[in-house]
Simulated assay, not measured.
Amino acid sequence: MIAGTVTGRSDARQITLFDSVGFAIEDFSALRYVHSRLRGTGLFQNLDMIADPDDPRDLFGMILRAQAEMAA
C-alpha cells in the first residue's frame, strides 16, 4: 500500500490499526512516514492512545470497547 501497488481503504468503516512489537525507532519512523503522507488529507482520525490496558496485547479490543462506550 505504501508503495502504491495495492489499494488501501475502500470504505469509511475500514480502519487501519498499527500495532507493532518491533524496535521503538522503527515504529516511530514508520508512524512519522505515515503521518507525513496523510497530513492535510482528512483521511485519518486522531485517537487518544494513552492507555493503561488490562491486556497490552489486545489493543484492537481496547479500541472496540472504547467505541462501544462512546456509542452508549
Score class of each variant (00 low, 15 high):
17 L>G: 00
37 R>T: 14
63 I>R: 01
19 D>S: 08
70 M>A: 11
44 F>W: 12
69 E>C: 02
1 M>H: 12
62 M>H: 08
2 I>P: 02
36 S>P: 03
56 P>A: 10
72 A>E: 09
54 D>T: 11
40 G>D: 14
41 T>P: 06
35 H>P: 00
50 I>A: 09
34 V>E: 01
4 G>S: 15
11 D>L: 04
8 G>D: 06
29 S>Y: 01
55 D>L: 12
41 T>G: 08
43 L>C: 12
55 D>I: 05
6 V>K: 13
51 A>F: 01
7 T>K: 14
16 T>A: 06
27 D>P: 00
11 D>H: 14
15 I>G: 00
29 S>A: 15
11 D>F: 00
42 G>E: 05
72 A>G: 10
40 G>K: 11
66 A>G: 11
45 Q>I: 05
54 D>N: 03
54 D>F: 03
65 R>G: 01
50 I>T: 10
46 N>P: 05
22 G>M: 08
47 L>Q: 14
17 L>Q: 01
47 L>H: 10
39 R>Y: 10
23 F>D: 09
2 I>L: 14
48 D>R: 09
40 G>S: 06
5 T>E: 15
70 M>P: 00
54 D>Y: 02
36 S>F: 01
5 T>F: 06
63 I>G: 01
32 R>A: 12
7 T>Y: 03
5 T>W: 11
32 R>L: 13
66 A>Q: 14
52 D>V: 05
45 Q>K: 14
53 P>Y: 03
34 V>M: 12
5 T>Q: 09
44 F>R: 10
2 I>T: 10
61 G>K: 08
72 A>R: 13
10 S>T: 15
33 Y>G: 01
46 N>H: 06
52 D>N: 12
16 T>L: 07
6 V>N: 04
28 F>I: 09
21 V>T: 10
13 R>C: 03
24 A>M: 07
62 M>T: 10
10 S>L: 07
28 F>M: 06
1 M>F: 09
57 R>S: 09
24 A>T: 11
